[in-house]
Amino acid sequence: MRAVIDNEPIAMIKVSVYRDRTLIDKTYTNDEGRYSAEVPEGELVTVRFDTHHSLTNAEDWHPSVVANVVADDRIPLDRLLLKTGHGADAESAVDALSGYLFAVEREDEDYARTAESRLSRLKQTSEVLQGIQRKLQEHFKAKT
């Protein structure tokens, strides 16, 4: 399984696996963008891909979330992450915004600082998505 951009691997992306609201495993992608997580087979999980505030790539990528996945060793979860400062089609913007929405209740002040900065560089054309983006920015700014 990999985290990639333009089919190039991304190292040091934090991959967190949740069952309901509980974190059950986390890891980081290696230099080849690969990762492996321990998940009980057949469990319904959510997998989140994001940067970590303490790493050099903290503001380089927008997050991504894959919700309601039935864990199985035959399901590869490769994610194409959206680089900050780049234009986003509607699907990529929704994916990134979902990643931030998932973080609203789970992350601390350090995360809020990088999230607010990354959100300020999310370029999109949809007014509805821009409204959600603004609300998220306000939320994270208030946490810092």
Rank of each mutant, 00 (worst) to 15 (best):
G33V: 03
D20L: 06
I13M: 05
V69N: 07
R113F: 08
V104G: 00
P40A: 06
A115W: 03
L122S: 07
L23I: 03
T56N: 04
V45I: 13
P76C: 10
L55E: 06
V69A: 14
H52N: 14
Y100H: 04
V15F: 03
I13W: 02
D60M: 08
D78P: 09
D110T: 13
R19G: 02
E91Q: 13
P76Y: 10
A96W: 06
W61A: 02
D50I: 04
E32W: 00
K26E: 15
V39S: 05
E38F: 01
V104R: 07
V66P: 01
I75N: 14
D78K: 07
S117N: 10
F102V: 02
V94R: 15
L80Y: 09
L97H: 08
R21C: 00
G99M: 04
Q124S: 00
R48P: 01
V47L: 10
V104Y: 01
T27F: 01
R21G: 00
T29N: 01
R19C: 01
A93T: 11
I24H: 11
L55G: 00
A90T: 15
V39D: 04
R21L: 00
A103M: 12
E41Y: 06
M12L: 14
V70M: 13
Y111V: 03
L80E: 12
T114K: 03
K26R: 14
G42M: 03
D73A: 13
A112R: 06
D20K: 11
D60W: 04
I75C: 11
V17N: 08
R34G: 03
N68H: 09
S120F: 04
R21V: 00
E91P: 01
D108P: 10
L119V: 08
A103S: 13
L101G: 02
D78I: 11
R34P: 00
A90V: 15
L77M: 12
S117K: 13
I10M: 12
P9I: 05
D95L: 12
A112M: 07
Y35I: 00
S16K: 10
P40N: 05
A90I: 15
